[in-house]
Design a protein around this nucleic acid. Structure first.
Length: 272
DNA sequence: AGTGCGACCCGAACGC
DNA sequence: TGCGTTCGGGTCGCAC
């Protein structure tokens, strides 16, 4: 399940593979995946090429001369590079063909991912991108920023950290890990966090995301990046999916509860 | 405005 | 063995 580190790995991998190759065909095999006009989607990229790939939160942003192709992988989206004569896999939903007869194929077993083709000037007003909060590593991501954002939040901190408009890019895995790092109980009401706890969230997010990107992301279930690079961050997980296993600090068994309908793993001793 | 929750998907895991 | 059911996960949109 791609999170920010996985998306960054995909971005870097694709950048070395597809930039500046002229697009000759765009095929869509599952139309609900495309948020913008489907006819335009299959026409407007023809004879253009991707000149850069950027990222905002978990969104990939493919740049052409006049447009941005926004792509969110959700849980199981992947990009593969194949020759144009290779047969289509049943889970390949969008195929971009380049002039050199290579193809970029979007593969998604759950069909949860989304794409949106917009004009460049629309980026600032496209909600999915515009409302993204600060990313881990951003110097403006500080405890005072978080205290302001948390001030009126009655929800559990676990739920609030998944809100992409506050910190952009943390998903369920990393939120569980960040809260363990910061020794904060995931059920604690966000508005009650102290400055010290917010400092630890900032520090933990920065360290965990940096490390995860360095290791190519986290492999859970079926995730592999487009070059078959396997995420190795899974070896570093301390609580996520570790239910019943001893806490690495105090040996208390890790527990799994639902918060806001999402699996939450934590150490009941270290995270009071 | 903040909050809660169903919908979107389908493969895996589980129950019988 | 096989069939039916449940679950999960990020985001959006709607109801309150």
């Amino acid at each position: 399940m791609p999170e920010i580190a996985e998306v960054e790995t995909v971005r870097n991998t694709l950048k070395s593979q597809i930039l500046n190759k002229k697009i000759t065909k765009v095929e869509v095999f599952y139309e609900p995946m495309i948020e913008s006009n489907i006819t335009s989607f299959t026409k407007d990229l023809i004879n253009h090429s991707f000149i850069d790939i950027k990222r905002k939160g978990k969104w990939l942003i493919f740049e052409t001369e006049d447009r941005y192709l926004l792509s969110h992988l959700r849980m199981e989206g992947k990009f593969f590079l194949k020759k144009s004569n290779e047969p289509k896999d049943k889970h390949e939903h969008v195929i971009f063909t380049f002039q050199d007869n290579t193809t970029l194929r979007y593969h998604d077993t759950r069909k949860f991912g989304r794409m949106n083709l917009i004009k460049k000037e629309e980026l600032a007003t496209t909600a999915s991108i515009a409302k993204q909060g600060l990313e881990p590593g951003d110097k403006n991501l500080t405890s005072s920023y978080l205290l302001t954002k948390f001030k009126n939040k009655k929800l559990p901190i676990k739920t609030v950290l998944l809100d992409q408009t506050i910190i952009s890019g943390l998903g369920n895995i990393y939120v569980n890990e960040v809260l363990f790092y910061a020794r904060i109980n995931p059920l604690k009401e966000a508005s009650k966090l102290t400055k010290e706890e917010c400092d630890l969230i900032v520090k933990g997010s920065n360290e965990i995301i940096t490390e995860a990107i360095k290791m190519g992301g986290t492999t859970i279930k079926s995730y592999t990046s487009s070059l078959g690079v396997t995420g190795r961050f899974q070896q570093k997980l301390k609580v996520h999916k570790k239910e019943g296993e001893p806490c690495s600090i105090c040996n208390t068994p890790i527990v799994n509860i639902k918060i806001g309908g999402r699996s939450t793993y934590y150490c009941p001793t270290c995270q009071k």
